[in-house]
Design a protein around this nucleic acid. Structure first.
Length: 1046
RNA sequence: GGGCGCAUAGCUCAGUUGGUUAGAGCACGCGCUUGAUAAGCGCGGGGUCGCUAGUUCAAGUCUAGCUGCGCCCA
C-alpha cells in the first residue's frame, strides 16, 4: 500500500471561515469595539493630521431608509479612511429634532384623544416623540458599523444647540438684514404655517379650474388702441387666464410683456378681446369664434398704463410690463394678485401696490375682501370652495369667455407633510434679505447673495486646485457648483419664521402700547444665554427673566420688559440645521467652525448645503465647509427611486393595469407574458387561477403578482439576514455620484466581489497556517514575491489617492482586481512551494513573509469599507511584532520600494503574455480531452476505456501534465529577466521550451516520465520511491519532526 | 416649463489631453480541479458606446438638437 503523502504536505490551514455569517457575528464585533473603547483609542493615536467631518442631521422621524443607510455608509468610509491615513477624524452624529412632521404626529395624537394641551406641554410631547425616533435611528445607524460618539450625539433640541441658533440669528441681525415684511409665501392652510422651499412637494396630476376672464378697458385706454381695432369693435376687454379663480378678488393689476406682439381679437356684439398675437387663435377657439378676425398687431409696450375694470370690484387693474410673461400659454396678459404670487408681488411692489391677500391662516376669506366679493358671500368661505362661486358669478356678469367646466391637469405644489394643495399667500413674516448690504462691524458691505455666490466660486476654484494635486475639495462632483449657484442666484429672501410651536422661537417682542416689534442683538444675547442654561422651552414659560429687565426700542429708549409681549413664531428648521457647524463644531477646540467635508445627497444643494452656506456667510463671512460631496439616490433596476412608497405606487399601478386588462377580457397568460411578469410560467399561472377560483378577488391576485414583479427589499431585512457589511459592499460597488441601482441582482454582484476579497485573504491566511511568519527583513525575497511587493506598492498608492478623492469604489475595485491578479497567477504558482517544500526552505519562507505582509496590508486598506470582515481577518492573522488587537488601530500600510521594481513589472507582464500563448495552444488539447471525457461519463462509460479518440500520449487534464513548446523572440525572452529560470513552475507546466525560431513539431505534448506521488509534478527526476528529490527531503523533515521515522 | 446631472456588453463599472481591433468583473456557455471545494483555474460567445446632425485626416471622447431617467425648482 503506497504511502499517502497528503499529511506531509503543508496544505492551507486556518480557522478563518469561508462563510462570513456576518448577520450573526457583526453584533459581536460591535460589542467588542464598544467595550474596548475602539473609537477613543483610534482618536488617541499620535498622528499629525487632522480632518473635520460634520454629520448632516437626519430628521428624527421614522425608520432609516436606503438613502440614509447609504449616506451613513459613505460617511463611515470617510471617517475611517481619514483616520487610517493618519488624519484624526471625529464623527459626531446628529439629529434634526424640531419641526412640523413631529409636531403634526403629536398634534394628531392629541386631537385623537381630544386633549387640551398647553404649548409647554406640547413641546414636552414633541421632545419625547423626537427622542423616541433618535433612539430608533441610533440603533439602526450603529448597527451599520458606523464609528462615532453615539452616546453623545448632537441634537438640534439640545440647550446648547438652541442657544447657538439664537447666536447665529444674532449675526444676521447684527448685519441688519433681518426684517419683518408682508410677502407671499407658500402656505399650508391645513397645517396653518408657511413652508420653506424645501418643504414643498409637487403633485403630478392636480386638477384646477381653467378660466378666461375679461377686464373691460376704460374709455381713455380704448382711445389709445383706436387704430388697432378690427372693424365693428366698439369696446375692448383685456383677457386674462387663470387656474385660481379664488385669487380674482385679490387682483390688482395685469402684466404684459413689452416686447411681445398683441392684437385685438373680434369677439361678439362689438366686443374686442385683447390677447397676445401668438395666442389669438387658441383664444378664438376657446371662445367658440368661427372666424379669426384681428386688428393690426402692436407691441405690449403700447399697453403700459392702460386701465381695466375689475369684473366685480370698484377698482381698476393697471397694465404693467413684466418679462416673465410668456407667449406660449394663456393670453399673454397675466392676472396679477400681489398678495398671492411671487412674481405678482415683485411686480406689485415695483409699482407701489400692497401685498393684498384677503385670506386667513385657515384658507378662508377674511373681512379684507372688497365689497363685490362680500356681496357674493365669499367672506369666511374656504378658497377652494370659492372657485365655482367666483366662476359662476363671473359668468353671470358676462366676464367669462368659455363654456363651464374647463379644467387643467398640471403639477401643483402640495405640503410635504399633509399633502394638501398649497396656496401662495402674503403674510407677515420674518425675512433675511438676500440683497441688502451686510453692515456688521468687520463685514465688507456685500449682500448675502453676493457673498454666497463668491464663496461658491471660491470653493470651485479651490476644488480645481485640489484636483490637480490628486485630492478633492470644493464641489464634488464639480457640477455641484452650477447647481447651488443657480439656486442661490434665483432664491427669494429667506422667510425664516413659522407659526408653529415645536422649534426655536424667534425671540422678538412687541411693545404692547405702540405695537413696535423689537429684535435686537442685545435681546438675542440675553435670550441665547437663557436658552443655553434652560433651553428654548423657557420662552414659553411665564418667567419674566427670559427677557432682559429693560428692552431698547428703535427710539433708543429702554423700557421695562413688562411692557412687551413675546412673539409666537419659531425659526425655520433649515436655519437650525444650517447653523449646525456653529453649534457643533465651532465650540469644540479641536474642530473649529471650518469643516473639511459635508457629505449628503444632491437634494441638499437646496437644503442643508444651501442654508449652511447662508448662515456661514453671515456668521463667519465665508462658507463653513471646504468640500461638499454629494451622492445620488437609490434606484431600482429601471432607474426609478427605490423607496417603500415609490415601490408601492408602482406595484399598485401594475396591479391596476393587470386588473384593467383582464376585466377588458384579455387572457391572464397573455397579459402576464406581455408584461414579462415573473408569473408568466405555466405553474404560476395555474396558481393564480386557483386563487381566483377560491374567490380571492382579482385585485388581490393582481397585487400579489405585482409585488413579486416589483419587489421591495426592506433594508433592515438584508441587514438582519445577511449582514450590514454586504450592504456596505453594495454601497462601495455602485457609483454614488450618480443614481445607484439596487436590486437583488446588483446586491449579489457586490457580494460576489466581497467574497473574492474574503477568499483571497482566506487563502493567504491558510498558507500562513496559524503560525508566525518570517519577517520581510529575515528573508531574501524571491523574484515572484518581489513582484508581489511591487504590485502591492502600486495598489497602495492607487488606493491612497482614491481614498483622498473619496473614490471608494476605485479603492474596492483596485483591491478586487489585485485579488484576482494574485489568485490567477501569483498564489496559484506559489502553491507548489507552499504545499510541497519543507517548512524551512528559503523560497517558501519568502512566500510566507510576503503573504503575511499582503494580508496585513490589504486588511488595513479595506478596513474602512469592510470593518467587520477586515477585523475577522485580523483576528486570524498570526501574531507578529506590534500587532494591535484591532485592524482599525492600524495606520496606512507601507512597502519598501525595490530598485528592480520596474523590471519585475515588465517581467511579469511578459510572463503573462507568455501564459496567454501557452493556454491558447494548451486549451484546445485539454478541452478536447475534457469533452470526450464528459461524453464518455454521460454515456456511462469510464473515460479512456478504449472508446474515446484520445491516445494515452495525448491525454492532458491539467497544465502540469503538459510539455509545451513556444515561439519566443530573444527580446521577449530577455524581458523575463529574473523570472526566466522559473517559467515552467510559474505557469504550472510540466515543462516549457522557449524556442527562438519556428517550431517544427507539436507545440503541446504530454510531459514525459512519472509524476511525483507527493507533488504530482512530472519533472523527470522522480526516483524509485515515487518521489522527487524535493519531496523526498520534505518527507524526511516531516518525519523527523513527527519523531516517527518511516 | 426651467436649472443641474446621467445614458458604454444582460448587470455593475473602466475608458487619461480626440488617435490601432472599446476593456474589466459578474452573469451565461464549454472544460479543468482529490491539494482554496457553499471555493479556485482556463477558454469562449456577447457592444451601431441612447438617437440624429455637425466639427475633424480621425469622435465613446468635442458641439448642437432630440429621446429616456434622476434630483431640484416653477
Amino acid at each position: 500500500m503506497p504511502r499517502d503523502y497528503k499529511a506531509t504536505c503543508l496544505l492551507p490551514k486556518t480557522a478563518f471561515p469561508m462563510k462570513g455569517d456576518l448577520f450573526k457575528r457583526e453584533p459581536q464585533w460591535l460589542a467588542r469595539w464598544e467595550s474596548t473603547g475602539l473609537y477613543e483609542r483610534i482618536l488617541a493615536r499620535p498622528v499629525d493630521g487632522r480632518f473635520v467631518f460634520h454629520d448632516g442631521p437626519p430628521y428624527a422621524n421614522g425608520h432609516m431608509h436606503y438613502g440614509h443607510i447609504l449616506n451613513n455608509a459613505l460617511k463611515d468610509f470617510v471617517t475611517r479612511s481619514r483616520n487610517l491615513l493618519g488624519e484624526r477624524t471625529r464623527f459626531i452624529p446628529g439629529w434634526d429634532c424640531h419641526g412640523l412632521p413631529i409636531e403634526l404626529n403629536v398634534d394628531r395624537e392629541v386631537k385623537r384623544k381630544k386633549e387640551n394641551v398647553s404649548p409647554t406641554e406640547m413641546r414636552v410631547r414633541c421632545r419625547d416623540e423626537a427622542a423616541k425616533w433618535v433612539e430608533v435611528q441610533r440603533t439602526e445607524r450603529k448597527r451599520l458599523g458606523v464609528l462615532g460618539t453615539w452616546e453623545t450625539p448632537y441634537l438640534t433640541m439640545n440647550k446648547a444647540f438652541e442657544a447657538q441658533v439664537i447666536r447665529a440669528l444674532r449675526a444676521f441681525v447684527a448685519n441688519e438684514i433681518v426684517y419683518r415684511g408682508k410677502k407671499p409665501v407658500q402656505w399650508c392652510w391645513h397645517c396653518r404655517t408657511a413652508l420653506a422651499e424645501a418643504e414643498v412637494e409637487y403633485a403630478d396630476a392636480h386638477v384646477s379650474p381653467s378660466i378666461y376672464v375679461k377686464f373691460a378697458l376704460d374709455a381713455q385706454s380704448l382711445e389709445t388702441l383706436r387704430a388697432k381695432l378690427p372693424a365693428g369693435v366698439t369696446r375692448v376687454a383685456a383677457l386674462i387666464w387663470t387656474t385660481t379663480p379664488w385669487t380674482i378678488p385679490a387682483n390688482l393689476a395685469i402684466a404684459v410683456h413689452p416686447a411681445l406682439d398683441y392684437v385685438v381679437l373680434q369677439g361678439v356684439d362689438g366686443e374686442g378681446l385683447l390677447v397676445a398675437t401668438s395666442l389669438a387663435a387658441a383664444v378664438a377657439k376657446a371662445a367658440g369664434l368661427t372666424d379669426l378676425v384681428v386688428g393690426p398687431a402692436f407691441k405690449g409696450e403700447l399697453l403700459l398704463g392702460v386701465k381695466a375694470k375689475h369684473p366685480f370690484e370698484e377698482r381698476w387693474a393697471e397694465v404693467f410690463g413684466a418679462d416673465y410673461v410668456e407667449s406660449g400659454a394663456g393670453t399673454g396678459l397675466v392676472h396679477t394678485a400681489p398678495g398671492h404670487g411671487r412674481d405678482d408681488y415683485k411686480l406689485g411692489s415695483a409699482h407701489g401696490l400692497e401685498a393684498y391677500a384677503p385670506v386667513g391662516d385657515d384658507g378662508r376669506y377674511t373681512g379684507e375682501l372688497g365689497d363685490g366679493a362680500k356681496a357674493m358671500g365669499l367672506e369666511g368661505k374656504f378658497i377652494f370652495d370659492a372657485n365655482p362661486v367666483v366662476e359662476q358669478h363671473l359668468r353671470s356678469l358676462g366676464a367669462l369667455l368659455q363654456p363651464p367646466g374647463q379644467t387643467l391637469t398640471h403639477k401643483y405644489p402640495i405640503c410635504w407633510r399633509c399633502k394638501n394643495p398649497l396656496i401662495t399667500r402674503a403674510t407677515t413674516q420674518w425675512f433675511i434679505a438676500m440683497d441688502e448690504p451686510m453692515r456688521a462691524p468687520g463685514s465688507d458691505g456685500h449682500t448675502l447673495r453676493a457673498r454666497a455666490l463668491s464663496e461658491i466660486d471660491r470653493l470651485a476654484a479651490d476644488g480645481a486646485r485640489a484636483a490637480s494635486e490628486g485630492t478633492a475639495r470644493g464641489w464634488v462632483p464639480s457640477w455641484g457648483r452650477e447647481r447651488i449657484r443657480g439656486m442661490i442666484e434665483a432664491r427669494p429672501d429667506w422667510c425664516i419664521s413659522r407659526q408653529r410651536i415645536w422649534g426655536v422661537p424667534i425671540p422678538a417682542v412687541q411693545h404692547k402700547a405702540t405695537g413696535e416689534v423689537v429684535l435686537t442683538t442685545e435681546l438675542l444675547d440675553h435670550v441665547a444665554n437663557v436658552f443655553a442654561e434652560r433651553g428654548a422651552d423657557a420662552w414659553y414659560s411665564d418667567d419674566p427673566t427670559v427677557l432682559p429687565a429693560e428692552i431698547r426700542c428703535a427710539d433708543g429708549v429702554l423700557r421695562p420688559r413688562e411692557e412687551f409681549t413675546r412673539d409666537g413664531s419659531i425659526i425655520d428648521v433649515w436655519f437650525e440645521s444650517g447653523s449646525s457647524f456653529f453649534a457643533v463644531c465651532e465650540p469644540e477646540p479641536d474642530l473649529g467652525a471650518k469643516v473639511d467635508l459635508y457629505l449628503e445627497g444632491s437634494d441638499q444643494h437646496r437644503g442643508w448645503f444651501h442654508s449652511s452656506l447662508l448662515v456661514g456667510c453671515a456668521v463667519l463671512g465665508e462658507a463653513p465647509y471646504r468640500a461638499v460631496l454629494t451622492h445620488g439616490f437609490v434606484c431600482d433596476d429601471q432607474g426609478r427611486p427605490y423607496s417603500k412608497s415609490d415601490i408601492r405606487r408602482r406595484q399598485e399601478a401594475r396591479r391596476d393595469e393587470i386588473t384593467a386588462r383582464i376585466t377588458k377580457g384579455e387572457a391572464l397568460e397573455g397579459v402576464l407574458a406581455a408584461m414579462k411578469s415573473t408569473w408568466a410560467t405555466p405553474e404560476k399561472i395555474a396558481d393564480a387561477k386557483k386563487r381566483l377560483a377560491k374567490k380571492t378577488s382579482l385585485d388581490d391576485v393582481a397585487l400579489a403578482i405585482a409585488q413579486d414583479d416589483i419587489e421591495f427589499i426592506p433594508p433592515e431585512k438584508i441587514i438582519a439576514e445577511q449582514g450590514a457589511e454586504l450592504f456596505r459592499a453594495w454601497a462601495v460597488f455602485v457609483d454614488y455620484e450618480n443614481d445607484m441601482p439596487y436590486s437583488r441582482a446588483v446586491l449579489n454582484q457586490a457580494i460576489d466581489a466581497y467574497r473574492r476579497v474574503r477568499n483571497t485573504m482566506r487563502f493567504m491566511l491558510g498558507a500562513l497556517r496559524d503560525e508566525p511568519a518570517p519577517l520581510l527583513s529575515e528573508v531574501v525575497l524571491e523574484p515572484l514575491d518581489r513582484w508581489a511587493m511591487v504590485r502591492l506598492g502600486e495598489v497602495l498608492a492607487k488606493c491612497e489617492r482614491a481614498y483622498r478623492q473619496y473614490s471608494f469604489r476605485e479603492v474596492f475595485a483596485t483591491v478586487v482586481d489585485f485579488c484576482q491578479e494574485l489568485s490567477g497567477l501569483y498564489l496559484d504558482a506559489s502553491k507548489d512551494w507552499l504545499y510541497n517544500d519543507a517548512a524551512d526552505v528559503p523560497r517558501r519562507r519568502s512566500a510566507l513573509a510576503t503573504m503575511q505582509h499582503l494580508v496585513r496590508s490589504l486588511a488595513a486598506v479595506v478596513a474602512p469599507i469592510l470593518p467587520f470582515s477586515s477585523e475577522d481577518v485580523w483576528d486570524h492573522l498570526p501574531a507578529f511584532e506590534a500587532k494591535g488587537d484591532s485592524v482599525h488601530l492600524e495606520l496606512w500600510p507601507t512597502v519598501t520600494p525595490l530598485a528592480d521594481g520596474e523590471a519585475l513589472i515588465v517581467a511579469m507582464r511578459r510572463l503573462r503574455t507568455l501564459r496567454d500563448g501557452v493556454f491558447a495552444v494548451l486549451e484546445p488539447v485539454v478541452q478536447g480531452w475534457g469533452v470526450e471525457k464528459q461524453a464518455a461519463k454521460k454515456a456511462g462509460r469510464e473515460p479512456g476505456a478504449g472508446e474515446v479518440s484520445f491516445s494515452d500520449d495525448a491525454r492532458i487534464d491539467h497544465a502540469r501534465d503538459a510539455a509545451v513548446s513556444l515561439e519566443v523572440s530573444e527580446a521577449d525572452r530577455a524581458e523575463l529577466g529574473p523570472l526566466a529560470p522559473q517559467v515552467a513552475e510559474l505557469l504550472g507546466l510540466g515543462s516549457i521550451e522557449l524556442v527562438a525560431g519556428p517550431i517544427a513539431g507539436e507545440r503541446v505534448r504530454r510531459a514525459l516520465g512519472p509524476s511525483c506521488e507527493r507533488c504530482w509534478r512530472r519533472r523527470g527526476d522522480v526516483g524509485g520511491d515515487g518521489l522527487c528529490p524535493r519531496c523526498r527531503h520534505a518527507v524526511e523533515v516531516f518525519d523527523r519532526a513527527a519523531g516517527a521515522p518511516a
